[in-house]
Design a protein around this nucleic acid. Structure first.
Lengths: 194, 194, 194, 194
DNA sequence: CATGAATGAGATTTCATTCAT
DNA sequence: AATGAATGAAATCTCATTCAT
């Protein structure tokens, strides 16, 4: 399995750093190779082409992202509380990795449509988690019965994403994690029964 | 003033069509010139460079967008109602111009960071309108006193934007305008006093 | 019509010189552009890609080659005499353009199978002329009635080609045209009646 | 002696198969190694470099080719009859090994000039056999006294080669060996006295 | 004002060969 | 003797921009 070898991760980490520091269009393969401490050609022993690096990057990072959030909310019974942990964890994980935040919020969005479609495939895993929380909330009576699950998900994801993007665009100069509580309040009020 | 001349608008309309139909990265200057019915060199009599076409495109379109929405909500007294009209108008205007929807939601986001920063400058006009509504809502007691204006704006814009993007990605195959009401409900519940 | 413009021929002439002097695999587009006195990009205004330069080169050169030979043998009534003029003209034309001789006999044969197939299409025009001479020879009783036209053509073309190739490989250091007579004698004896 | 070891021949056979099936330019060393069932590096224990594989391939195959033909014509006294056996044997050997026919007639000709020069060195053994037959033919009075040995050899080799190449290009879909008799007739008529 | 032919910088990817194990 | 992971040089083609007409 290629992706278990140390160089696979090594190259992905290098790609995150290079893209964050130079921007998507200035992230040449040779720069990534140099940052990873391997020869240009070595990249192609682990990745099919440049696009494959970027998709793998997103898949690896977002994969562990979804996994971590899944573990955190597993034991929680209240859907509203799950939503809180989701928001907080989302903010925490991106706060903890400034480079990754820049790459996912700004740089990777410059990729072409085909790449973005493949990235969206990965994102669907995240959106399914959100959908699940919303559905549970409706079932358990915490959220409105007439809540449209898809719209609720779009509000939740749209708000979180816009909040993180604004924070990154402001050069991460305020405390993102502190926004978890008020953002959560906005979201639950939008969804909640009563 | 360059931007009053007929060819200025002609080139911008051509750019919208070319980008919508070919995608951002396949929208070469020569294609735009051909679509506009002018020579390549003529473009540079009206625009400083390619980036300038795109920024102008966004400025022109978003400018009239903001203007129209401003006019619509002017006579309304209830902030919540203003928010409703904002959402509905936003959905209506993009529903009416499929090309523009594709360009603003998908294609222009592939531009580089610098261009996106300049586009965001234009967007600020829109965000100021939203901010204004939220502030009025708080003052008039329709929205919570402790509502964070910036977060509320991020929720409102993030939700609207995500909703439109999802609609465009689904090839505009359902009725976007019909979503104005439930989206508005989500947003006001998030903001409202009670 | 692209191929009537002076730069079209200019680039082809440059390609002949560069390939003859540097060899097929050392004939980079940039070298051809430099030799032609144009920018690299200009090449692509006249040719689809590098392969297109080579096919065009062969088509242009072989086309006028076939045309000239056709004109020379037109007024001649004796097929055997036609064959003589064909051989002599073939040797004369390649003797007169040392670079072209190197390119067609040695360098262009290193091209990949696809390119060679397209080159062979052009060659078919030449082979048709040979076939025609052989058929006439049989009809007029100069050549054997039981002569296999295809085999005769293969002998004629194979012998001429091998003779020229050997001459080029020996660095063109003897008089190729002087071989027209004995080569013609070999060929007609092979074909002739009696 | 490296070339007596089993892996030497094993790699050469693998090269013939790989080149015939993939074409000269798609015959990477790693593919040959895989086909031969050895590691890439092992190739370099038996061959100096890639070119050395190809030259060795040609030398081995053409060597046994010349040897077999030599044995066949040894006992024959008539030069014309020797020529017949040469042609027939040549056609038989290539008919019996389709892969080898493709490799020698089409693929190896795509090699660069330097490699082709080294291949020609090997070919000289074959050409010497032809020269010898022609000389004997002249001495014994079967061929013309004024026959130019070099030209006769070029006709003989050129005709045989062109005939085989045409047959390979036509995907070997007719009987090559059946052409031995008419081809021989063409050649002897070209050479013969009377 | 308008044209459009010409420019030329810049990056991905392949693959023969090496060498530590 | 055998392995195979790693190396790194090298070339085609695109397209925004210019400028002579």
């Amino acid at each position: 399995m290629k992706r278990d070898k140390p160089k696979f991760k090594q190259i992905i980490e290098a790609a995150v750093v290079v893209i964050a520091e130079n921007g998507y269009h200035q992230a040449q393969v040779s720069k990534i190779a140099k940052q990873a401490g391997v020869a240009d050609g070595t990249i192609y022993l682990y990745f099919k082409n440049k696009e494959d690096i970027l998709v793998s990057l997103f898949r690896e990072k977002m994969g562990s992202f979804i996994e971590k959030i899944g573990q955190e909310i597993e034991g929680i019974s209240s859907p509203s509380q799950k939503l809180y942990v989701l928001v907080e964890k989302h903010f925490q994980l991106l706060s903890a990795d400034r480079h990754l935040a820049i790459v996912t919020q700004l740089e990777l969005r410059q990729s072409n449509k085909e790449l973005r479609l493949r990235i969206n495939e990965v994102l669907k895993g995240y959106l399914r988690v959100v959908d699940q929380i919303v559905k549970e909330g409706i079932e358990k009576g915490e959220f409105r019965k007439d809540l449209d699950v898809r719209l609720a998900r779009q509000m939740i994801f749209g708000t979180i994403d816009e909040t993180v993007t604004t924070w990154v665009m402001n050069e991460q100069k305020y405390d993102l994690v502190a926004l978890a509580k008020p953002v959560h309040e906005l979201l639950t009020r939008g969804c909640s029964a009563s």
